[in-house]
Design a protein around this nucleic acid. Structure first.
Lengths: 166, 166
DNA sequence: TATTGTTATACTCTATAACTATA
DNA sequence: TATAGTTATAGAGTATAACAATA
């Protein structure tokens, strides 16, 4: 139940301060949060946590990873990753195996079922992106992405190390 | 102390999944959060909470506001606003007065001292923006802002109702 | 002794619900 | 009875610290 929808008769809609709306940083933060919330909402409606997608995406690309490297890539505390992997493993999307070389390590890999589920979440997020960026035409969307990538590269090189073309 | 800085010798830097880095939504969320964290950090280093800036910006523009309208503009629960205003009032940046028309209401207004402090935070955030968006030249920065405003308008019209020029 | 993954603890944040004073 | 602002309560989320197994 959205209270904003019911309040529109009682008082005029309060606008964000112009000063903030004129700030690209503010818009960036606001839109970024909005996108994340919507992505979370849709993913959860289909039985995924948003982090599930990140984990599956990493495992779907790279070779088999150890928990420490996954946590590192996600900038996530290893202790938080445990519950995520427990859940993914219960649902047969990933497998944990002891590394014979170093029996302290768990080698995590994606299962066939996990790849199918990855395709499902990918489609959900992709659909959302289409809607979210709909106000921009294709050329502008590409220009936006290039600029965001440039900012991300400065902000955290781990994000977009080389401007490699898709 | 950033642990990433100390770990660079032990293992190769883990990169974000390409699939995520290629998503504009992901970059938006990541950059938005990064900007907010940096803004929070700098503001707090100067004795401000980030919300202080929002409140002061609203009061600095509009006429005198009631607590409900401020909370509405910030999409903040009125109960959370109380502590914010308490703090601002203690520091003589805002004043609360009973509305004679309706003694349940508090009319909140910015003080002269508050205007000076507003100028200070504004400068801090403005400086950060300059650094954060430095990878883009002036024309691109403007193009980016226009696109973000278009997205914000779709996402929440309360944010940027008309594309009014600065 | 140090490291990997795991579990337990404690703390912060915030949403919700009660409460008061006015209407 | 309903509303504006305030205070109190409780629950979620998470960072931190302890832990067991292995190196």
């Amino acid at each position: 139940m959205n209270e904003l929808a019911t309040a529109d008769t009682s008082r005029p809609v309060q606008l964000v301060a112009r000063e903030l709306a004129n700030s690209s940083g503010y818009l960036l933060a606001r839109l970024g949060l909005a996108f994340k919330l919507q992505a979370t909402e849709r993913a959860e409606a289909s039985g995924f946590e948003l982090y599930d997608y990140s984990v599956l995406a990493i495992l779907g690309e790279g070779s088999r990873e150890t928990q420490a490297t996954i946590a590192d890539a996600l900038t996530l505390d290893p202790s938080r990753l445990v519950a995520l992997l427990d859940s993914l493993e219960e649902r047969d999307m990933v497998e944990r195996q002891r590394d014979p070389q170093d029996r302290r390590r768990h080698v995590v890999s994606i299962t066939n079922s996990g790849r199918k589920e990855l395709a499902r979440v990918r489609a959900i997020i992709s659909q959302l992106e289409g809607e979210f960026f709909a106000p921009l035409d294709s050329a502008n969307r590409e220009a936006l992405h290039t600029m965001l990538a440039a900012l991300a590269t400065q902000n955290d090189p781990r994000c977009c190390p080389l401007d490699d073309e898709e």
